[in-house]
Amino acid sequence: MKMLIECCMNNIHNGTGEVLKAFHSLPHVEIVEYGCLTQCGICRQENFLFINGTFVAGETPDQLLEKINKMCFTLT
């Protein structure tokens, strides 16, 4: 199953970019970068991505990566 990760370029600087690096080389992952995903209130406070259309956020990049990993294991 291909995983779609959608990210907000405005959130990359908060640490989300570090999380994306973990997925860039995986062949089953497609990353789509948007200028804005209209999540501005959350964007200022947390790291977030959309994984297969589901909003996932974490206070730190490590928390976000942990949530994504847990989510992916339940998707398979």
Rank of each mutant, 00 (worst) to 15 (best):
M1I: 12
M1S: 13
M3Y: 15
I5P: 07
I5T: 04
I5C: 08
I5L: 15
C7P: 03
C7Y: 13
C8W: 06
C8D: 11
M9I: 13
M9K: 15
N11S: 04
N11T: 01
N11C: 08
N11L: 09
N11E: 04
I12R: 14
H13L: 14
H13D: 13
H13P: 11
H13T: 14
H13M: 13
H13W: 08
N14C: 07
G15W: 11
T16L: 03
T16M: 10
G17K: 07
G17F: 07
G17E: 07
E18N: 10
E18G: 12
V19K: 10
L20F: 08
L20V: 05
L20P: 05
K21H: 12
K21N: 12
H24V: 12
S25T: 05
L26Y: 04
H28S: 11
V29D: 03
E30Y: 05
I31L: 06
E33D: 08
E33P: 00
E33Y: 11
Y34D: 05
Y34V: 02
G35I: 03
L37G: 04
L37C: 08
L37E: 03
T38Q: 13
Q39T: 02
C40M: 01
C40Q: 02
G41I: 03
G41S: 12
G41H: 09
R44K: 11
R44N: 06
R44G: 02
R44C: 00
Q45W: 00
Q45C: 00
E46V: 00
E46W: 07
E46H: 11
E46K: 13
F48N: 03
F48Y: 12
L49S: 01
L49I: 10
F50Q: 01
F50C: 00
I51R: 04
I51A: 05
N52H: 01
N52A: 01
G53S: 02
G53F: 05
G53C: 06
T54F: 08
T54P: 00
T54R: 12
F55D: 02
F55E: 03
V56C: 07
A57Y: 12
E59R: 12
T60Y: 07
T60V: 00
T60C: 01
P61K: 05
P61S: 06
Q63Y: 10
Q63V: 02
L64R: 03
L64S: 06
L65F: 10
K67S: 08
I68D: 05
K70N: 13
K70M: 12
M71E: 14
M71Y: 15
C72W: 14
C72R: 15
F73C: 13
F73D: 14
L75A: 15
T76G: 14
T76W: 14
T76E: 15
T76F: 15
T76A: 13
